[in-house]
Amino acid sequence: MTTSLDHRILDILRHHARSTIQEIADQLNESVERVSQSIHQLERNGIILQYATIIDDSKLTRRKPPIRALIEVKVRPERRTGFDAVAARIAKFPNVVDHYLISGSYDFLVMVEGDSLEDISRFVSGKLATIEHVLSTATHFIMKKYKEKGAIVGPQDGDPRLMITP
């Protein structure tokens, strides 16, 4: 059971994961204790899974940015466990970064990350496609990222406002 406070905290953390408990409490007009307790509970209940950072890898210079691919996977569901047992096998691979069951002409949409095209190809042909219940795969390499989790990638316009206005 989540409370209205939980939701208001999550609204902030969803986009500003680095907000301090004090800042969140101030913004919501709540006590530090209540906010802290709520966050603790959300973490313990597996509602907050991770605090992550959205990065524009293309700007990094010291390392080659990772290659990503979206893979459509057709699956024959298992008798008793349906898609879930197959999904669990796929999701455990650390290079699978996102994994959804979707409606439409295929079953899973899997986002895979690797150091190179070969790396990903090896994973698809060697691991993913050979799983017993996987019928077929179609791999789409990602060429450019425009937006991720609500964040627009690329140069942002500065604040066009005048410094002082009535």
């Binding site: 604040d159 406002r161 005048l162 410094m163 002082i164 206005t165 009535p166």
Partner: peptide, 8 residues
């Protein structure tokens, strides 16, 4: 600037 009179 906290001197502006318009939305950000």
């Amino acid at each position: 600037s906290l001197g502006v009179g318009e939305p950000d």
